[in-house]
Nucleic acid binder design. Sequence first.
DNA 1: TGATAAAGTAAATGAACAGTTACTTATGGA
DNA 2: TCCATAAGTAACTGTTCATTTACTTTATCA
Lengths: 209, 209
Amino acid sequence: MRNAEKTKERLLQAAEAEFSQSGFSGARVDVICREANVNKRMVYAYFGSKEKLYTAVLHNLYQRLAHRETALLEEYQNSEDTERVIEAIIADNFQFLKDNPSFVRMLMRENLDQIADLSVAMFEKTNAMNLLRRAIERGMASGQLKADLDVDQVLLTLTTLCFSYFSNIHSMSILMKTDFTSDEQIEKRERVLTQMMLSYLRKQEEQRS
Amino acid sequence: MRNAEKTKERLLQAAEAEFSQSGFSGARVDVICREANVNKRMVYAYFGSKEKLYTAVLHNLYQRLAHRETALLEEYQNSEDTERVIEAIIADNFQFLKDNPSFVRMLMRENLDQIADLSVAMFEKTNAMNLLRRAIERGMASGQLKADLDVDQVLLTLTTLCFSYFSNIHSMSILMKTDFTSDEQIEKRERVLTQMMLSYLRKQEEQRS
DNA sequence: TGATAAAGTAAATGAACAGTTACTTATGGA
DNA sequence: TCCATAAGTAACTGTTCATTTACTTTATCA
């Protein structure tokens, strides 16, 4: 009946929903407690303050991301097939962002608010970026990809294209009168982006349909 | 000494700064008043409520955008040169987003919060999107561009790439250890994006260096 | 079994804040 | 010049909310 771990877990989950929905200052500790079915007192017992609860939520989300990235890295770090690696990274990104809408929202808020130190620390450890960078550099060296690519710009483009599909999905749906939140549209977007990026990166003579 | 118009204007400007900085619930009416050097009472006399003040700020920003877009439309709506039109639209987007960081922030917040009715209404009137659509369709018909493009996806890509450079500029600067806010980097990004999009859209045989 | 520490509750406290009220001062037309 | 009205001020009100306090219940192990 009494279980500190479970209670913490429920608080964390409710907090993730509330903070990603309403932001730090918009979020209500009372709402979090109501949703979690936990007494307000426990927030302070377990987390210390609203702010520390927010940080815990953020930390938790970055953990999930890091976990996926590690798996991806292990699978592909020795792959010679540049195009497969790029495809896999895009696919992984799409899957993660689709499965974790609150991650998308929290990251948007981090971009708006101040980029908490925690985020800075996590960004610096990110693996997928390094994997992608190495894949592109290897592809350029081996002649699979164009030789004159600006690697940083390519990374920027690719990362940005994945993330912003999800972060601007609402305004874009209105702007283009299409529901981009459907699975069908998400899959389509992934396909289009992958093809576009590959066709841009590939050497001309290796161009395929 | 007393001037209702000037007072309103000062309030609006201070409100734009405060709302885009802190969001609706994070923004403090007292801060807006202090910055504007205006008594709190006047917010309620002139705008009615915090919420209506927010709406006025948003409206004002959309007006600025619409103004630019109309000018762009007049200049390019009859142009036959698809590539020049695309270049001009990207250039205009970059200029506007660079000059109006609070627009970027407010739009991010609209995406996060709920997309106010006002935003929906403004999105529906947007001109640059239609101009771009027509330019691409014309380019496809005339054979300047690939014939099998998915126009909606291209519009999505282009709009997104411009906006998200500015909206994610902070996390990206950290992630890639580069200050993307400098004029130099902004110009570089515009150049790279323009070239990338054009090289992707062009028919293969018309490919240039 | 019963004492003690952990888990949980309900209600209070006080600060921050949006919105109001009652009042004062400047301005411009009669 | 004076008065009607618009512009502006300062202090107050009521609410919302994060955080605390004082108290109760449950579990565990000596």
